[in-house]
Amino acid sequence: MPRYAMVVDTQRCVGCADCVVACKTENNVPDGFCRDWIVQDVTGVFPDLQMEIRSERCNHCENAPCVRSCPTGASYIEEGGIVLVDHDKCTGCKACIAACPYDARYVHPDGYVDKCTFCIHRVKEGLEPACVEVCPTQCLHFGDLADPNSEVSQLLKTRHYHTLIPEAGTEPKIFFLT
């Protein structure tokens, strides 16, 4: 069974937000919301500064607090480890939003909770998520962690990386190469 993951090369990322715009058109994300976003993480004082630029989204956690907290079973883990929301089962109670340490979810104006799907409709067709396909700096990589020869597995084997808020124990599947 595949374990889909995304690897973000923060060395290459310039924070242009193309991933944000591409996701919005691909997935018809309503005005005022987005499923992915850019963070510029700055440390230090002038002139000794460092900055990590990250394209962030749902971490599709292996140990997903949103799924555990969902009272109706609308949030679930799909084959391949993709965390999804069944719009018909979702009542918009926001328990998952409170549980998610990454602020990855929002309430769609139509009343259900929405978030990144890893573009499962594309992945099923053998395509990459829209954000990966569009990225001009090619800083986004998508693939199967269960396959040791996949690009994402190889990148994690050969490069330094970190995940977000690992102390939350969520086992996120978005990895940031440094």
Partner: peptide, 14 residues
């Protein structure tokens, strides 16, 4: 760099 979270407003429709 997005309007998610921070005072995000639904302009109703997309």
């Amino acid at each position: 760099i997005s309007s998610l979270g921070l005072g995000a407003l639904s302009l109703g429709g997309g």
